[in-house]
């Protein structure tokens, strides 16, 4: 199955739910609304021809500049039958970072969603145990958000222009 065939099949199944689609480095990337994400992944998983049986990765990206859609939840799906990958993205606002949990579909989503919650503060609705996983429980912020800088901002001995970012 090629990306074009996959895209045609997705257009047919999803209709207007598919907001944006593009091919980035051989991988089809689609954007769906946060409310649709669970349904779309359930559909591509259970459809016998698409058969995206494997959840490769769940992650998030923070875009503080984009108001109303600051957090992007990224699902990497993999169809072993067709040897093709699909990336599903959903943007959610930082004030109410909530999306439905994938744990009813994949047991492996459990820790990946806990990790995403831990680092980005995304609330996965319906998750059985949404607690911090790698950081300590007492931590009161989500460290991968862009407003938390890696180094102490009061340092004057290091000029960022010369060292990476």
């Amino acid at each position: 199955m090629t990306n074009n065939e996959l895209l045609d099949a997705l257009h047919e199944h999803l209709g207007t739910k598919l907001i944006v689609s593009e091919v980035l480095f051989d991988t089809l990337v689609i954007e769906v609304a946060a409310a649709d994400a669970f349904g779309v992944i359930e559909l591509v998983k259970n459809d016998s021809t698409l058969s995206f049986n494997f959840l490769t990765l769940i992650g998030a990206v923070h875009y503080p500049e984009e108001k109303g859609r600051e957090l992007c939840v990224v699902y990497h799906m993999h169809s072993w039958k067709n040897a093709i990958r699909l990336r599903v993205k959903s943007y959610i606002p930082q004030e109410n970072p909530s999306i439905k949990s994938l744990t009813p579909l994949f047991d492996g989503a459990n820790w990946q969603e806990r990790e995403t919650f831990d680092f980005f503060g995304i609330q996965f609705e319906g998750h059985p145990n949404l607690t911090r996983i790698l950081n300590m429980d007492e931590m009161d912020y989500h460290p991968m958000l862009k407003q938390y800088h890696l180094e102490d901002e009061t340092r004057e001995d290091k000029d960022d222009r010369f060292f990476g970012r």
Partner: peptide
């Protein structure tokens, strides 16, 4: 998480 070293955050710099 006992030896978490924030690799993903480190990589952003």
């Amino acid at each position: 998480g006992y030896i978490h070293r924030a690799f993903e955050k480190l990589a952003e710099r």
